[in-house]
Design a protein around this nucleic acid. Sequence first.
DNA 1: TACCCCTGGTTTGGATGCAAAATGTAAATG
DNA 2: CATTTACATTTTGCATCCAAACCAGGGGTA
Lengths: 215, 215
Amino acid sequence: MSGEIHSGVKLQQQRLSQMLGVSRTPLRTALANLAKEGLLRYESNRGYTVREFSRQDVVNAYAARAVLEGLAAATVARHGLSDEILNELNAMLEIGDRALSKGRLDPDDLDDYRSMNVDFHNRIVAEAQNRWVEDLVRQTQMIPFASNRMIVWQDYPVMVRSHDDHHRLVDAISKRDVTRADFLLREHIYFAGEYLAECLEDGRIPTNSSNTNKE
Amino acid sequence: MSGEIHSGVKLQQQRLSQMLGVSRTPLRTALANLAKEGLLRYESNRGYTVREFSRQDVVNAYAARAVLEGLAAATVARHGLSDEILNELNAMLEIGDRALSKGRLDPDDLDDYRSMNVDFHNRIVAEAQNRWVEDLVRQTQMIPFASNRMIVWQDYPVMVRSHDDHHRLVDAISKRDVTRADFLLREHIYFAGEYLAECLEDGRIPTNSSNTNKE
DNA sequence: TACCCCTGGTTTGGATGCAAAATGTAAATG
DNA sequence: CATTTACATTTTGCATCCAAACCAGGGGTA
């Protein structure tokens, strides 16, 4: 994830186990997990290699996430929200409002906004109560630059518009408008993917950004 | 998958390894893989248990698969198809036509139809060239009764309608009609899920059906 | 009688050793 | 000189062994 090991290189188990100070057995389960998550490529009797991700892969991951979260939003809109959760969502919206209230993007506000954003999206997905959507969304983020922790904190109007999507989404959900909720979240995420790809293209984002999805 | 081991039971590694005739090491990697696929639940230091699937889980899996394959169909429609692939799809449609040409459902035709159906859906998904969609769709099928090998071969009009969806989907894709392709496949799969759930509810399908997704 | 703690057995997790497969190298052959 | 083949080395995969964590049952105490 950090880019420390480059794409395509072969991961030798003995070397890695020595580097990490564990034996090969737990290392192999870790490698198997990462392979299942799609970060590594496994070939029988040939070991694990670091998968490479093109910009198209990032866009594709966002596209998949968009329809999945769209489904989640639609589901939540169909079922309706309890007042309690509505209040939580509104509190998150306020956090975002505060972070964007200065008329410009202050780097100090990024962390607040980011954690709000993560919570917001996770909350919607969790509320849909669809294990598969939850799992699959998590997996679309298991790729460099595709996490919902990844926020391009550079263009103020873009962020304002993006957060406005959040407002409208809560509005749509609370009004039980299924199609609008679906569309809003789909578009919200789809655009984020396209915009991110554009920024990566321009080199506006350093390849080793602190925005990568390590915990 | 076959239901041989019931939901909720704990999988003891030593017992299983003896039953399967392998040592615990490869068994543990297998268990880890199944857990990653969502079939088993893993708790640290407490081992693996067989996850249980409600009918809602099956419906949820279909719902997720519906939006993902819808995305795939939309992508293919947007990009367009080569003549070669169009011919392949048309050949599959003909296989389906033949299997349904008797005016009733003959059990002898199920296998042909089933393998055609698997190929058809896989082909669409593969053609979208989105690794994540491909992976995620595969995962939504890693649950009893949710495989695309699962076909309720009981009601003739339902099958005719379902196969007609295939025809219309190819038509929509070949005409580059993105929304129609998206909608058709979404609805096609969504309905299949609802219908299946209904049949399961009625007990029209034996719980240990030969339709489960073992290879 | 209900609850807690302690202890013995069971089960999982990790380390090590060994066989099989793959890779790289050098010699042999055309 | 290119290609192939045999061999040595590396690397993976599986079996086994040991320690640590969990579980069940019994005894003790309030």
